[in-house]
Design a protein around this nucleic acid. Sequence first.
DNA 1: TACGCCACCGGAAGCGGTTCCACATTCGAA
DNA 2: TTCGAATGTGGAACCGCTTCCGGTGGCGTA
Lengths: 347, 347
Amino acid sequence: MIGIKDVARAAGVSQATASRALSGRGSVSEQTRDRVRAAAADLGFQVSYHASSLATGRSRNIGVVLPYVNRWYFSTVLGGLTRQIIDAGYDLTLYDFRGGLHRQSVLNDFLLRKRLDGVITVGLRLDDADATRLLSLGIPIVSIGGSLPGIASLTVDERAIGRLTADHLVSLGHTRIAHIGGEHESDLYFHISRSRREGYHASVDAAGLERRSAWSVISDYTVNSAYAVAKSLLADPHNRPTAVCCASDEMAIGVILAARDLGLHVPEQLSVIGVDNHPLGAVFQLTTIDQFVEEQGTRAALALLDELGDAQEGSSGVLPGLSELPLEMVVRSSTAAPDETQNPTFQ
Amino acid sequence: MIGIKDVARAAGVSQATASRALSGRGSVSEQTRDRVRAAAADLGFQVSYHASSLATGRSRNIGVVLPYVNRWYFSTVLGGLTRQIIDAGYDLTLYDFRGGLHRQSVLNDFLLRKRLDGVITVGLRLDDADATRLLSLGIPIVSIGGSLPGIASLTVDERAIGRLTADHLVSLGHTRIAHIGGEHESDLYFHISRSRREGYHASVDAAGLERRSAWSVISDYTVNSAYAVAKSLLADPHNRPTAVCCASDEMAIGVILAARDLGLHVPEQLSVIGVDNHPLGAVFQLTTIDQFVEEQGTRAALALLDELGDAQEGSSGVLPGLSELPLEMVVRSSTAAPDETQNPTFQ
DNA sequence: TACGCCACCGGAAGCGGTTCCACATTCGAA
DNA sequence: TTCGAATGTGGAACCGCTTCCGGTGGCGTA
């Protein structure tokens, strides 16, 4: 394996100069630099990152911690992260703790190995002990979807999301609006489920509409789970809602499928709205709120890189855009004004 | 930052002994070991992996290279990989080259940094130059879904998949069977698309059925794309197939949705079969072939760990199970015998 | 009793870079 | 012309850990 001392010898300079020439730090004359570079290219030299990291204390490596790589939201965020991180010349180390299974092990053993320059957590609820431990690493941390004391967080206004979805249905004239959201106490998504539901409550209350507890149901964020839940929510023709607010597009798709299988027409008999702007939404003509999931990843990565002093040009500043993510309503045809002729009398 | 020499001092031993006690290599008396361990725990000592890696040459780090983290197949494989890799105490470094964009950069710059103990590639077509470069790293490589000279590969029998899907439709009595597959020349999935289509051809030919070129269509592997393609494939009532063989479940779902939107009943008027056993398949009652995607990841990881000498108990042996992945037909109700009364005369 | 073996341990040499410091040149300003 | 600063370079310390090598002391055996 060829090392920097081979390059130095080949270029006829000292190892120190070779290092300076290649890293760009310190001053080296133009021609020496060229000579060293040529020699390095010639020999196919690649720095040993272990050695380099040991000497500099920096590893050009960013850790990403999340619960489920194989779920749409997380893999999409991850897609946004990888692009920026790779572009900046960093490596990305992935810690998937699979819904809590390896949570402690990741937090205790892996993250503390001091091989990271920064950490990005996605959808992770940390208790105080975990947070202190993370902070004790002494490296910058950015958290997506969770506000933690002392940790830079990038959050969307979950309450606004809940309100916007319900507002849309209210403004169309619906008076029987159900909500399908996540489990409040779940380790994942933690406050997200609660906040979105609260937003829905706020909207419905503001409109002076009745809130039936039977219309406030819980599901996990998958199509399959929402499908099952919707089947019973929509079962009784005389007590069903005319519109359903879902906490995610996947849930909304589950509802649409359930409605179809029950013979209900969307949107004539049932309006459905989701959240995410999931790619599948288009084919279901799903009205939704785009929360720019991939861009959440992009922004978090840029914020972290910025703090590491490796930001892309133009993005300097203090944690640009953190905690202020955009939302955008995408109106398609899964929502419409309620058509009372199509619905049996409400009881 | 506290280092091993602090631990050594606290335990009253030399640095060498402290290292041996903590790593388990070399012989140390029981009580010394305990004393060192206590001291280490006491001080909250964590080895520096940079230093450790530099000294040993091993980094406990596995690289995973794939084209799109945010697509179902890849994120699911990745899910299988992470579990095994984390369990074995390794870190996982993710290189997502986003469909080719960063391909060369990943191959040239990142992978060569000598910080990996092994590499797993997923769905990656390498040319000879790339393969040699990868092999020149001198570390074990396992490839999922691509057979490369000199690289241990884990492949499914794509041709068999194509044949099985078509055989199922043939055995139900269908005579007008279409196929929706991927682009042959695409960089991704490379031979997969071709082989699956060949399997379909073989099956249809063996049954002595007509093969219309209009029924052999190309789409990418997403719901949306297949939806669009199916819309035109199924448009003409007098020339449409009674069954569609799809190269993936997502494609199949696109076809089912298109059929519904065209007012066609599945399976009465159209049988649809896919490949993958995608979780969404259940809700569409989709008949499919399970190719155990997550397990592909699991197996690849185990094979690599095995080669690294860190296999889990019971999985020793030479690359266990490589190149012999299981397939399993999952029959649901998106396929049925053709009901000629439901279809207009074939022209 | 003497010897060899072995378990245990410490000193010190790496692993492969980076960077502090010292030194020699060159150059501009006083 | 002289002096200080800036620039370019090499020697060597150092990053933190592992492991080779050699030196103890205890034990079993001849």
